[in-house]
Design a protein around this nucleic acid. Structure first.
Lengths: 190, 190, 190, 190
DNA sequence: CATGAATGAGTTTTCATTCAT
DNA sequence: TATGAATGAAAACTCATTCAT
């Protein structure tokens, strides 16, 4: 007779979709309840407040994204393979969890994120950034944050184009993106 | 006497900052009034509703961004010069109107945007996309939307890194970004 | 098996403390359940509603107070002994059941008391009041209700002072109160 | 166009009656609004919260009661005159502001009173208590708090009897109460 | 019988909008 | 024309009560 985790999940799932579509303040709690198929009061047995829901979502999906990117990371392979791994995994995540990715992008640095969520923000981008320092000799001469910005932004630019219906995230698009991104990051021959 | 345009401007300026920081639903109308230094009721002499304010802002700044990007466009110069022009102008806009750029990014495709705003969304990215079709031979073989996504996303990735304090948008950063973006887009020699 | 009376008692005890501290509307039913160490649903096997709990408490403790005051009442002794008996017993009750006395004072005439509780209110103060009519010749010339008001109010004033920490209900205080109250009630010599 | 003080007063007046009848938690804010003849939202332009209303009432009426008791206090007259002054004024207040007195009695030491209200509680009973120390030789040998408890409690006992319809606070009742209270407090001859 | 998770009606509070001044 | 006090509809949240286990 413990708190029903199915209901907690249903609430998180409903909130993910609604928040990613209309933003935190654009969604009313009873609306989340309705979509989750539970009573409005039930939400408050599982979450202390509406803010607790966003934070639970943020932490869950930030962790999930990080795990996806870092899973089976080819630490011993050359830089290009590592970059392609990250891009591949990010596309993977974008295809499998588009709502979650949209949610994470939209709630990055939001004022209602709590200390734990903010700690995650910092901690999880760190390893990806660290990579560029390690490969300083094969990548373009520039601050790692610049290179990471182009990598992440470039891929997300393609992902967003797919969300807007301009292209599909198929193998060709992914391969072309990987090539383009690598050309953007690598130290040019000469 | 006609409606005082200074007040209309003050409202738009206040709303720009508040909306870009906390989102449309995260800001109360009387708060905009307070920051604009006008009475809450006054806002409704200049705008029909809260939604009318976002839409006015969206249309103004989308137009301004577009004008910035397209102003003095080097139609007769080679592709690389044209790409660098766009990147330069986007960085320019990011430095001069950071709030406006943040606002535009955050309100892209928002459900409260009206028909006119949505029309602008489509119309203004069009010419930039058209460019890639024109230069098909010197750019990477890929859909123009993909290339545009990398261009725009890559630059915005760097801009966002600057917003988060990781780097400054100085001449070096801008030059490096232009080089990286061009390497991402150009047809590789071989 | 019959309903577990231990649980009923636990609920009443928990409710007594909570209601006397924070009032009827200031206490949530699940809170009573938690303090009683029972499930929230269990309360409704023993009481029809939250109001039924206050009424059960009211009737129990009003009866108990009345029994205390009237127990071994020295009907045949002089008026002063009878007054002192009542004062003694009231102090006794105040020391042994402070929460119950606080509860009774706070819920006197409350709108959620039912007919039975209200009947008790009237019935139980009656005998005490009757006393003053019987002793009309040795007590001050005044309506019995006035004298009773001073008696009860005066003692409760001292009790309340003890609750607020200003004095302890020791033998000296009780003796002094009895003397003062008697001097207030008796017909003055002359 | 400043906040309309009439409305603030109407809210306080409505809240006084409702709170004194049914207690703080027994009254809903829209109910206060309805009785005050204002919109529910209006209350929150005048008071930060429901608690702010009780505290405003508490401070206003505690101050008023104190001023009533201490106004024209006969500092140079004998103890009996001083006691009778306090009793007279308390009866006066009870007749003119019965709701306020009921309110003060019911909300004494309530957990939602703020620091300022609690400070008032302590500060205002102080001078009355001080009196008994000053008159130690003509009053009964007992702690001042005991004597004050009997004085206040005794009068309030009579007042409460009047609220319950058992007697009217006319001149005779008041005179008899003053005599009784004085006999309770004075040092007995012998 | 006992439970406590679930619920929706009701609570306090906020806010876009109106309107008397 | 400009205002900001007033408002009620809607928000977040609570709680007495029910009911499946």
């Amino acid at each position: 007779m413990a708190l029903n985790d199915d209901k907690r999940e249903a609430v998180l799932q409903a909130a993910l979709i609604l928040f990613s579509d209309r933003g935190f303040h654009g969604v009313a709690v009873p609306e989340i309840a309705a979509r989750a198929g539970v009573g409005a009061g039930t939400i408050y047995r599982h979450f202390e407040s509406k803010e607790a829901i966003v934070n639970a979502l943020y932490q869950r999906w930030k962790g999930s994204l990080s795990a996806t990117l870092m899973g089976e990371f080819p630490f011993t392979k050359p830089a290009r393979a590592q970059v392609e791994h990250v891009v591949d995994r990010l596309f993977d995540f974008a295809k499998k969890q588009p709502q979650a990715l949209k949610f994470l992008e939209a709630h990055h640095h939001a004022p209602y994120l709590d200390v734990q969520s903010k700690a995650l923000e910092a901690r999880l981008t760190e390893p990806v950034r660290a990579f560029f320092e390690q490969h300083g000799r094969v990548t373009r001469k520039a601050q790692p944050e610049l290179l990471f910005g182009i990598l992440w932004g470039g891929v997300m630019g393609v992902v967003r184009a797919s969300w807007e219906g301009y292209l599909a995230l198929d193998h060709v698009v992914i391969r072309q993106t990987k090539e383009a991104i690598w050309d953007a990051l690598r130290r040019s021959e000469s």
